[in-house]
Amino acid sequence: MRLSIAKILSGTVFLLASGAALAHPSHEHASSFMAGFYHPVGGFDHLLAMLAIGLWASSLGGRALWAIPTVFVITMLAGGGLAVAGLSVPFVEQGILLSVIILGALVLFAKRLSTAVCVVIAASFALFHGVAHGMEMPLNADGLHYALGFAVATAGLHMVGLGFGLWMAKMGTPLVTRISGSVIATAGLLLAFSQ
């Protein structure tokens, strides 16, 4: 399956702009959606991991282009549901930081793994991100709209990473994608040591 850069970027714009569609039905739903939307975008560790997922998927190509981001979003939603249901998942913050470091390293070293293994890795990290989103949901938020918000933002960030990675490959500069992975992994290490 080949995706053009224009399709990926236009899809990202539509995903990121879809919050405006919820602005009129009620303030509760709109504010819940926006609270969920800003959570992955506002947390530097979440932001880096989401971009890394897209970069990693783009470097693998084939089924990984859609399988890794899709499984990440689905598992992240499940993790958010676990947190809202009151189930405890240990080492959430450590899992998130580890996701930034490892995903960045996978992009840096362009490690070729089977799509099934990549999906398991992505799902494992997505669980931690989802639990964090669920634990930090505002008490007055509508859960469905909040979840939709963080799912849309996450998918949008994946698409940005995916689009950038595909663009670099098309331009014949995959090294830039690998350097981006090193920046992400290094930032993860710095975040880990700063805590």
Score class of each variant (00 low, 15 high):
Met1Leu: 10
Arg2Ala: 08
Arg2Lys: 05
Ile5His: 08
Ile5Arg: 13
Ala6Phe: 10
Ile8Ser: 01
Leu9Pro: 08
Ser10Trp: 11
Phe14Ser: 15
Gly19Val: 09
Ala21Trp: 14
Leu22Gln: 00
Ala23Gly: 05
Pro25Val: 13
Ser26Trp: 03
His27Thr: 15
Ala30Pro: 09
Ala30Gln: 08
Ala30Thr: 07
Ser31Ala: 14
Ser31Ile: 08
Met34Ser: 08
Phe37Ile: 10
Tyr38Lys: 15
His39Glu: 12
Pro40Arg: 01
Pro40Cys: 01
Gly42Met: 13
Gly42Leu: 14
Phe44Gly: 13
Phe44Val: 15
His46Val: 06
Leu47Ile: 08
Leu48Lys: 03
Ala49Ile: 05
Met50Asn: 04
Leu51Met: 11
Leu51Trp: 03
Leu51His: 09
Ile53Gln: 05
Gly54Asn: 04
Trp56Leu: 14
Ser58Thr: 03
Ser58Gln: 07
Ser59Ala: 14
Ser59Tyr: 10
Ser59His: 13
Leu60Cys: 07
Gly62Ile: 03
Arg63His: 00
Arg63Lys: 02
Leu65Trp: 03
Leu65Glu: 00
Trp66Asn: 06
Ala67Val: 05
Ile68Gly: 04
Ile68Ala: 04
Pro69Tyr: 04
Pro69Phe: 06
Pro69Asn: 04
Thr70Tyr: 07
Phe72Ala: 00
Phe72His: 01
Phe72Asn: 01
Ile74Thr: 04
Ile74Ala: 13
Thr75Asn: 10
Thr75Glu: 08
Gly79Ala: 06
Gly79His: 05
Gly80Ile: 01
Leu82Trp: 02
Val84Met: 09
Val84Ser: 07
Val89Arg: 01
Pro90Ile: 02
Pro90Arg: 00
Pro90Gly: 05
Phe91Cys: 12
Phe91Thr: 11
Phe91Leu: 15
Val92Arg: 01
Glu93Val: 12
Gly95Thr: 07
Ile96Pro: 03
Ile96Met: 11
Ile96Val: 14
Leu97Glu: 09
Leu97Tyr: 09
Leu98Gly: 11
Ser99Trp: 11
Val100Phe: 14
Ile102Gly: 05
Gly104Cys: 08
Phe109Ser: 12
Leu113Pro: 13
Ser114Leu: 04
Cys118Ser: 15
Val120Pro: 06
Ile121Gly: 06
Ile121Trp: 06
Phe125Ser: 06
Leu127Asp: 09
Val131His: 03
Val131Leu: 13
Val131Ala: 06
Ala132Val: 08
Ala132Phe: 10
His133Trp: 00
Met135Gln: 11
Met135Tyr: 09
Glu136Leu: 12
Met137Phe: 06
Met137Asn: 04
Pro138Ser: 05
Asn140Ile: 05
Asn140Trp: 09
Asp142Tyr: 00
Asp142Thr: 02
Asp142Gly: 01
Tyr146Phe: 12
Leu148His: 02
Val152Lys: 02
Ala153Gln: 02
Gly156Tyr: 00
Leu157Asn: 00
Met159Val: 05
Met159Arg: 11
Phe164Met: 14
Phe164Arg: 03
Leu166Glu: 02
Trp167Gly: 11
Ala169His: 15
Met171Ser: 14
Met171Gly: 14
Met171Arg: 15
Thr173Trp: 10
Pro174Val: 07
Thr177Glu: 07
Thr177Val: 14
Ser180Val: 10
Gly181Lys: 01
Ile184Asn: 04
Ile184Pro: 09
Ala185Pro: 00
Gly188Pro: 08
Leu191Ile: 13
Ser194Lys: 06
Gln195Phe: 09
Gln195Thr: 08
